[in-house]
């Protein structure tokens, strides 16, 4: 029997498996927020499917008591695509990491996003390979010294939000593992979006890349180094909310509010802009030069892949009638031998 939705709580989504992330890992917080969000989505527990690839984050499905597939490295978006196409009624989530999604699985991520298939993709970005014990990842900063790069890495990093926007994402957002309330809100928005929802979560790996996002996570630093995006509102940040982002030509700049500069002079966020130009510009604001935007960068509507694919089946049935074996066999030229 399906449990009455109103009765479900985070506890109902806890599996009987012992969680095996390192103590202090940012993954715990993300798991807790997801378990808090799921009961609020008016979806029965049996209709959730969590699909992951390989990496620390990808152990996630074992820790939620829903249907789940812990698949292979980088392929979760493709596995999830198969599930969602066959069963559009299911709520399908992809849990992935920076290596899983952007290195070995980069191709699948791009194509899932461009198809706008209704998957909730949550990318835990810790800018390091954790499960293989500390090699640099495609989001590691240039010059990163790790076990595999003792003299520093020599490749330029990818920025997940920019990648997603470049792949024509209809929903793109960012949050931080320890910003409990913000993360919860972003996950709810993602869950309610119809189409691919891409969420980057800054996640601390306290073993191999501790404090990588401390500027965005730390209570003392985060107000000055992040800016919360709100649709229709100006970009204001700082402990005293006295700084803002203004456009200078096509480039953002930090300005001090007060004096000549008013709120109306600032850049106003528009997550629904049909063109992704603004969202992309925001995705290029990096620490330490800029406060890094958190929240929903882009949220637009476009038909979903699974809906269009299944609509073609409905159309074909309406045009030609439900296929029968007789019609299948007798199609084309046939002849009778007596």
């Amino acid at each position: 029997m399906s449990q009455a939705l109103t009765q479900l709580t985070a506890k109902d989504f806890a599996s009987d498996q012992e969680t095996r992330w390192c103590p202090g890992c940012g993954d715990y917080s993300i798991l807790a927020q997801v378990k808090k969000v799921l009961p609020t989505l008016d979806t029965p527990r049996e209709k959730f499917v969590f699909v992951s690839g390989i990496g620390c984050s990808s152990r996630f499905p074992y820790y939620v008591n829903t249907y789940g597939i812990h698949s292979i490295h980088g392929r979760a978006p493709a596995v999830a695509t198969g599930v969602k196409m066959v069963r559009p009624d299911l709520s399908v989530w992809v849990i992935t990491g920076d290596g899983d999604a952007l290195s070995i699985g980069g191709n699948h991520l791009l194509h899932a996003i461009r198809r706008n298939i209704d998957l909730k993709i949550v990318l835990f970005n810790n800018r390091i390979y954790g499960l293989t014990k500390g090699q640099y990842s495609p989001t590691s900063e240039m010059g990163k010294k790790t076990k595999s790069t003792p003299m520093g890495s020599v490749d330029f990093p990818l920025h997940p939000i920019s990648v997603a926007i470049g792949a024509e994402a209809t929903f793109v957002a960012r949050s931080v593992d320890v910003h409990v309330k913000h993360l919860e809100d972003v996950l709810v928005r993602a869950a309610r979006h119809k189409g691919t929802a891409f969420v980057e979560v800054y996640q601390n790996c306290n073993i191999f890349n501790d404090l990588a996002f401390e500027y965005a996570a730390g209570k003392d630093t985060r107000d000055d180094h992040t800016v919360i995006l709100e649709h229709g509102k100006p970009l204001i940040f700082g402990k005293n909310r006295d700084k803002g982002i203004r456009l200078n030509g096509t480039a953002p700049e930090i300005v001090q509010l007060g004096g000549d500069i008013k709120e109306d002079d600032l850049l106003f966020h528009d997550e629904r802009a049909p063109e992704p130009t603004l969202a992309y510009l925001l995705s290029r604001m990096h620490h330490p030069e800029f406060p890094e935007p958190l929240g929903v960068f882009r949220a637009v509507q476009r038909p979903t892949y699974e809906a269009l694919a299944n609509q073609q089946i409905a159309t074909a049935r309406a045009q030609h009638g439900e296929g029968t074996l007789e019609a299948l066999f007798d199609d084309g030229e046939t002849w009778v031998v007596n």
């Binding site: 597939i69 198969g82 599930v83 196409m85 066959v86 191709n107 194509h111 074909a316 299948l328």
Partner: peptide, 27 residues
């Protein structure tokens, strides 16, 4: 054969083709 309920998925590569099929079988 869409009116027979056949869903075809031209994937981005061979690997996605294979793994999408695993998801479809699970479903």
């Amino acid at each position: 054969y869409k009116n027979f309920g056949v869903l075809t998925f031209q994937a981005e590569d061979e690997i996605a083709a294979m793994t999408s099929v695993i998801g479809a079988a699970f479903a």
